[in-house]
């Protein structure tokens, strides 16, 4: 399968990428690792006129401890998240989710920013960042703004970025020593999750629970979180996992099966905490 023709620009800096984005308007797409965009282009589901390759912007590949927050550059690969010692100690949920993505080849190329910006509702890292109450940093022509993960995912493969904005960093509250769990169910070893659960014990008490594959965007299982906060036993709280969700009903899994999976996986996640 061959993508439709496009013109290719390699950005040498974030500023250059922003200039190119502004120049081409909606016709351009940013290419990071390319592991969501290129498959879509090969299927002709995406036909950008211009690809702006930001894959070599090393300035966007980093993990930094910044007080009680961890800053992750948007071009940090899944492979790095799997092994980075700061991630392992401060936000191990992120490493646990990264480890479950695709396979070694995909994790070598895929980036956290690319995955989040692509906004697939079943993306593993999206669940982890949502459960961690992450904040996404975007740079655009009018400066820098922070978007909470809860507001970032606006629909199936839709995000809150403006056309000329670039996702540069993900900020996560450090959670050293706090328990976490990542559970997902896939049909085959390297498949996307049918349903997945990311759970994180919060610094202020309580547990954050995020679900993937349960609607057009990753979502927080608010009913489960509230029940747990009210002292409801975990198994009982897990029964509320699908409350308020609109799980897809398709060839991969029926909506009712997904709701069942959500309950089972939340139960497992609570047991693992």
């Amino acid at each position: 399968m061959i993508p439709a023709a496009f013109s290719y620009v390699r950005a040498g800096s974030v500023e250059e990428a922003l200039d190119e984005l502004s120049r081409h308007g909606g016709a351009a797409r940013l290419l990071a690792g390319g592991h969501s965009l290129l498959p879509a282009m090969k299927l002709r589901r995406a036909e950008p006129g211009v690809l702006i390759d930001i894959g070599r912007l090393r300035e966007l590949s980093y993990v930094r401890a910044d007080g009680d927050r961890i800053a992750v550059g948007a071009l940090t690969s899944h492979r790095t998240l799997e092994r980075d010692p700061v991630v392992a100690e401060q936000v191990p949920l992120l490493a646990a989710a990264a480890r479950r993505i695709g396979d070694q080849q995909v994790r070598n190329r895929g980036t956290i920013g690319g995955s989040l910006a692509h906004a697939d509702p079943a993306a593993d890292l999206a669940g982890a960042v949502l459960a961690l109450d992450g904040v996404l940093v975007a740079r655009g022509p009018s400066g820098v703004r922070e978007i909470p993960a809860r507001e970032f995912f606006t629909g199936r493969c839709r995000n809150a970025l403006a056309a000329a904005e670039l996702l540069t960093e993900i900020r996560l509250p450090a959670a050293p020593g706090r328990s976490y769990a990542f559970e997902k169910f896939s049909r085959r070893a390297l498949d996307w999750a049918v349903v997945g659960v990311a759970a994180q014990e919060r610094p202020g008490g309580g547990v954050a629970v995020a679900l993937i594959g349960m609607g057009p965007t990753p979502v927080r299982a608010t009913a489960v979180e509230e029940a747990l906060a009210a002292g409801t036993p975990a198994a009982e709280a897990a029964r509320l996992a699908a409350q308020g969700c609109e799980p897809p009903d398709n060839a991969v899994a029926s909506a009712s099966y997904r709701a069942h999976l959500a309950e089972v996986l939340v139960t497992r996640a609570m047991a693992a905490l």
Partner: peptide, 12 residues
């Protein structure tokens, strides 16, 4: 580094 060459552009 191992990669899948059907999902990488020669340009990359």
């Amino acid at each position: 580094v191992a990669i899948k060459s059907c999902t990488v552009l020669a340009a990359q």
